[in-house]
Design a protein around this nucleic acid. Structure first.
Lengths: 214, 214
DNA sequence: CCCATAAGCGGATTTGTGTCCACTTTTTAG
DNA sequence: CTAAAAAGTGGACACAAATCCGCTTATGGG
């Protein structure tokens, strides 16, 4: 497994003084659209990167320049698909703020929303997690990072408002709450072990309360 | 990614009327030893299957006949390395039974033992989980299955002895407790997020109590 | 011991992920 | 407008995981 070349590309984009070229931006768009279509039709595993490049009308070098691995391509798609979800979450949390909903109830709601989002996106989540070259890349990615920050943030606010004990290591509690949402664990729980989404949601809500108040 | 051929080999071994041939058994031994050595020296990722075959003095076809993927080889090694650990666990649980230790304390001890086992075997655990062709193969494997059965078993005994409420869905609680021990999650918690083994052990013990009594 | 059968063998080959680098195109400053 | 610099391109190529199948060997029954 060789050094991921996209790292260099990423650094170039970040440190360069120029904006992204128009042709490159258009190609990126094309690649993402082709990948989304092919993955939805055939499943990630049965689509090769050559397939994606062909469907996008670009060469392999172009594809890899932009997405250093198949896993990175999946993560980029996941990031896009999460945009709407994130907007919905922010909107709903806003509405709850207007109504002064208890923070732990907001957390419970968010965990349930996560369960449903993960359930409807399990193919791409699972592929993203499995296709990244380095094991820890998935958890360190932007989508999972956002989930984590939100959970920990809600816990912190709950503590600040006296709903839970402030001495808790809230970061660790947040991480423990999110562990079952790791794609492989989640797939095992939902698809293999047969727990319903309602069961999982209820369990996470109960966990949040139990852990935060223990 | 083509159909795993080892499935056919496995079925043959199970349904065949014959015992394993002596040469095949010896080759299997040789392969496992070579792999253990090379993986320990260079890390799983830097060792190719050709390296293992050469070191074992067998051909590639022989290697793959026995271990359908690199991940399966890792799992087999993990299974072996877990033997001593399992024996130690059984022995310790026996000793606790003699002393009538509360079941939840036994569970807490087991969870802590798991944390330590996972910490000292994270390279192989991580590789096994990441190298298996199908995402769910790891969790369904024998080592993880044993962990799961033991945790759920201890919870059930705790309920039977009135230490925790029996109405709980103990299976789900056990699964939630084990989620942070999934290799990728565990690596993230311990190596990336900086939680010590003591912190993780304490958190799992507290989780067990909180979840089971909630 | 012999023979038939089934298990087992291995190295050439395939496949998909990822790399390489000479060439092309876009952008910006003068 | 022009030239230089930097971003970007793509298809040949490398590599490691995995497959294939004709050939070999071990086993058990007669």
């Amino acid at each position: 497994m060789r050094r991921a070349r996209g790292e260099a590309a990423t650094l170039t984009l970040v440190t360069g003084g120029r904006t992204e070229r128009a042709d490159a931006a258009a190609n990126r768009r094309r690649i993402l659209e082709a990948a989304a279509r092919l993955f939805a039709e055939r499943g990630v595993e049965r689509v090769t990167m050559v397939d994606v490049a062909r469907a996008a009308g670009v060469g392999q070098g172009t594809l890899y320049r932009r997405f250093p691995s198949k896993g990175a391509l999946c993560l980029a798609l996941l990031d896009e698909q999460m945009r709407d979800f994130q907007a919905m979450v922010l909107s709903q949390l806003s509405a709850m703020a207007q109504e002064n909903v208890p923070w732990m109830d907001r957390l419970g709601w968010f965990l349930e929303a996560l369960v449903h989002f993960h359930a409807t996106h399990i193919p791409l989540l699972s592929a993203a997690q499995h296709e990244v070259p380095q094991p820890e890349e998935f958890i360190a990615s932007a989508p999972f990072h956002w989930e984590r920050m939100t959970v920990i943030g809600l816990l912190r606010e709950a503590a600040r408002h006296g709903e839970i004990a402030p001495a808790q290591d809230l970061r660790l509690i947040g991480d423990l709450l999110l562990a079952p949402l790791h794609p492989e664990v989640f797939y095992f729980l939902h698809a293999s072990s047969g727990y319903t989404l309602e069961q999982l949601s209820a369990a996470l809500r109960a966990s949040a309360l139990a852990l935060a108040r223990a």
